[in-house]
């Protein structure tokens, strides 16, 4: 009897996995219809590969000074030129992709985790919990996210982990509000009632039944969120509150090249272009995912 039950459970989980895989395939099929989204996806894949294989792709070390080659314009030896210390700009951009990706994904992870906890509790429990949590979110939202990040950086001081925490914490309100509204639209559905009747705890209902059903807006917001996180982190480094030299962060590179813009514009041109390309890719991928995950919205 128990053996039969075990077989039944395992076959239902296999079935569920198969269904999930089929759904993913369907979403990817719809995503493929958007050329721009596919270009965006290709750029992001390329960026991830660049970050992983930076040691093999970058022709020079990102921090080695070469004072004989200061301010070199783009050439065969240095395809994007060199900076004020003779460091190869292409190599620094390649290594900088690691930082941008790290900041983008980890800060979104922080924002998403806390946003899900706040938004889901607020929407699920309602009443006083909702009132208190949403007033807290309103207070956070009364400052533009970059300014909240600046305030947090002022408290924590410069550094990569602090930058990720600051950018992540500053973007919690957006996630919390989206998740709350999704939970509100789902929590009265019959499958939630059924789970409650089965004796599932609130935590289990939220984690197993509600959150998987509001994944679409979360995924879209997270994709666009990575773009905002990269821009905000670069902005903070640009004004001197994020990462400090010689870290090859794109915003910090722009900031140090700023003083030489009249004579050596390549020092600011290429790191800026790298930021724009990545933000473009994440934006079009986010738009494509929105249409692919919610075809009704597109119609």
């Amino acid at each position: 009897m128990e053996k039969q039950k075990a077989i039944k459970t395992s076959s239902s989980s296999v079935e569920r996995k198969r269904l999930g895989f089929r759904k993913l395939k369907e979403i990817f099929h719809r995503l493929k219809k958007s050329t721009l989204a596919m270009i965006g996806l290709a750029i992001i894949v390329l960026l991830v590969l660049t970050a992983i294989f930076a040691d093999y792709i970058a022709p020079y070390d990102y921090s080695t000074n070469d004072l004989k080659n200061q301010y070199a314009m783009p050439s065969k030896e240095h395809i994007l030129g060199t900076d004020e210390f003779g460091r190869d700009i292409f190599s620094r951009i390649v290594y900088g992709s690691r930082i941008s990706l790290q900041v983008g994904f980890i800060s979104v992870g922080i924002a998403l985790t806390l946003g899900v906890i706040i938004g889901a509790s607020s929407g699920f429990y309602g009443g006083k919990v909702d009132m208190i949590l949403m007033r807290f979110i309103d207070i956070l939202q009364s400052l533009p996210d970059i300014l909240m990040a600046i305030a947090i950086m002022a408290a924590l001081g410069p550094g990569l982990s602090n930058l990720m925490i600051a950018v992540g914490l500053a973007s919690i309100p957006g996630y919390a509000k989206i998740i709350r509204s999704s939970v509100l639209s789902i929590k009265d559905n019959e499958f939630v009632e059924a789970a409650r009747a089965n004796g599932s705890s609130d935590f289990r209902i939220i984690v197993k039944h509600i959150i998987p059903n509001c994944l679409a807006p979360i995924i879209v917001q997270a994709t666009l969120g990575v773009a905002y996180a990269i821009i905000n982190a670069a902005g903070l480094s640009f004004i001197g509150l994020g990462l400090e030299p010689p870290t090859p962060e794109w915003g910090a590179m722009l900031s140090s090249g700023r003083g030489y813009i009249r004579d050596y514009p390549h020092m600011t041109m290429f790191p800026g272009l790298a930021i724009v390309i990545v933000i473009f890719a994440l934006n079009v991928l986010g738009d494509g995912l929105r249409d692919a995950l919610d075809p009704k919205l597109k119609q």
Binding site: A227, I231, A234, G235, F238, I239, G251, L254, R258, I261, P265, T268, G272, I275, V276, I279, F280, N283, V284
Partner: peptide, 18 residues
């Protein structure tokens, strides 16, 4: 408009100065 959204103010500012 899409390019405008992707362009951070600190880079656009530098390009305009240039």
């Amino acid at each position: 408009a899409l390019l405008g959204i992707c362009m951070p103010v600190f880079w656009l500012g530098l390009l305009l100065i240039l």
